[in-house]
Design a protein around this nucleic acid. Sequence first.
DNA 1: CTGAAAGCGCTAACAG
DNA 2: CTGTTAGCGCTTTCAG
Lengths: 337, 337
Amino acid sequence: MTVRMKDIAHDLGVSVMTVSKALRNHTDISEQTRERVLARARKLGYQPNWIARSLVTRRTHMVGLVIPDMMHSFFAEVAKGVTQKFQPLGYQIVISNSEENAEREEEQIQLLLARAVDGLIIASAQTSGRSELFQSMRARKVPYVLIDRVPPGVDAHFVGVKNEAIGELATSHLIERGCRRIAHIRGPAISTGNLRLQGYRNALHKAGLASPAEYIVRGDHGDERGYVAMQQLLQLKKRPDGVFCFNDPVAAGAIQAILEAGLRVPDDVAVVGAGNVHYSDQLRVPLTTVDQSSLLTGEKAAEMLAQCILADKPLAPVYLFMEPKLVARQSSLRNGA
Amino acid sequence: MTVRMKDIAHDLGVSVMTVSKALRNHTDISEQTRERVLARARKLGYQPNWIARSLVTRRTHMVGLVIPDMMHSFFAEVAKGVTQKFQPLGYQIVISNSEENAEREEEQIQLLLARAVDGLIIASAQTSGRSELFQSMRARKVPYVLIDRVPPGVDAHFVGVKNEAIGELATSHLIERGCRRIAHIRGPAISTGNLRLQGYRNALHKAGLASPAEYIVRGDHGDERGYVAMQQLLQLKKRPDGVFCFNDPVAAGAIQAILEAGLRVPDDVAVVGAGNVHYSDQLRVPLTTVDQSSLLTGEKAAEMLAQCILADKPLAPVYLFMEPKLVARQSSLRNGA
DNA sequence: CTGAAAGCGCTAACAG
DNA sequence: CTGTTAGCGCTTTCAG
């Protein structure tokens, strides 16, 4: 069976308490007994039982990470950032997949709370103002940090990119490159999608360009949807000469549709994505995109959460909005300006 | 504070035991009291404390997943498969990143054991025969399933692809397409890398083709390494006309090197990868690759582990080797045969 | 410096 | 059907 402190104590003829203290480097233990305990522990291959320890200390040294899709390379990168920051602190990460489903997200969070994780990092899939969930979390005093998306009606720690700026950067870039009929394949109706759309509109407005309603089509997250959305755009009488896509997977799908239609990228239609996923420079047409510091998002969220956990009391919410950066590549490289 | 069973019991004037049984739908509780308990629990927003429960039941309903790199889309896909299978069973996944480092892997596994996970799924980074780790796991009777790689000297449940077949499929394909000077950018010195190399050799041998030593260069996992390795190959007097790359990221790097050298893919050099990562058909040159059923790997490993956990005693090791499938795309589409 | 007492929140086993 | 007793492995508190 597994060795317990009791076993070590028994072997050495000391009390369990002595063992406990020795193992945790308490000061009020003689150097000699500490050595004896440590030696014995090593020989028996003792591993502390974290379950028991957690029950009394009320610390599990686990943090929950709730994301909508681990296959999306943005979230994978965030997860990596979070892990990198927390692993050295002795924390482990429990990952939950909400599959972009608000109810499942809620279930998973409840489960994580039942497991008494020390904190949570959440890329929320909530769309309507179901803020009870977050209120109940606050009531329980479980620290949490939101990332990427701002659920409606929630006021909490947040780390993400300036989404409106993404839309503006991408769209202005297309304008500079000489595009005049600029479409947008928009994302889902959550903060990221809405704000990028808003940025797109701002940029067009500033440049005095029109944005006809039919130039805005729904693309969601995936590349299949981007493909379909682009086909739709290509059938318009006034075909767009530039498209800003919600994210890189959508843009990849859009490019495929354009090429299949016998058109050229960027000469006939220029394309800009967002996210700068790590293979975006290796796509059929190297993709112009807007970098949103995915890894850093994970790292910053982890740091924030770690602070909350250490503080051991609710801290005033901190909002960290990161500045996006345009990464110009071939998909928007046209004769234009 | 958080509500405990004690609170419900006190409110209702019953014992904690009654509450406990009612909440877990034990049979020997009257319908009436069960209702009362459930109602009260709901009103108070009671959540069972899994820590306490785990301490006595010795079941945590957590499984550990140890992988070398969560950014590599193969492992992300595996993780997704594992999660999909386990989430409905009420299990949660603790993910640990070994960063391809054997010692860190060992630490992480020890930590997971200390957390008393019910089981483990491991893509091991062990290179030398340090099998003590796995022996100690067996001694502790923690069920575990290995995936993707077979560490030397370990005999345990396994799910992975037939790596030798991958090498044979890819290389034979290049031969069929008319390549005669076929190089290999090999992976790391673990089972996957070694076996794919072996398959490459087998195929060449069967076809009576030579495999000069300088045609085999080290590429490891990443695309930067594939890029460098390819540059090296391009400088040989007898330039290869076909390259089988350890995996798709490496192949992407190789293609980049070829194009930058002013050569064409596949006409000057044909390229085949392995893994069929989800963006491989959208690369600059759509990549011929060998599919290894990543998602299925995760799902099957999860099923296997779930069985072991349910069985509650050591089961004879089961080895599941999946059949790879060639996915022919443009990067190998040449005039050849 | 060491240890005895008490308890974290829950459940298994048995008694009523 | 309900409750009592005991204890999971550990730590906190406080007395020697």
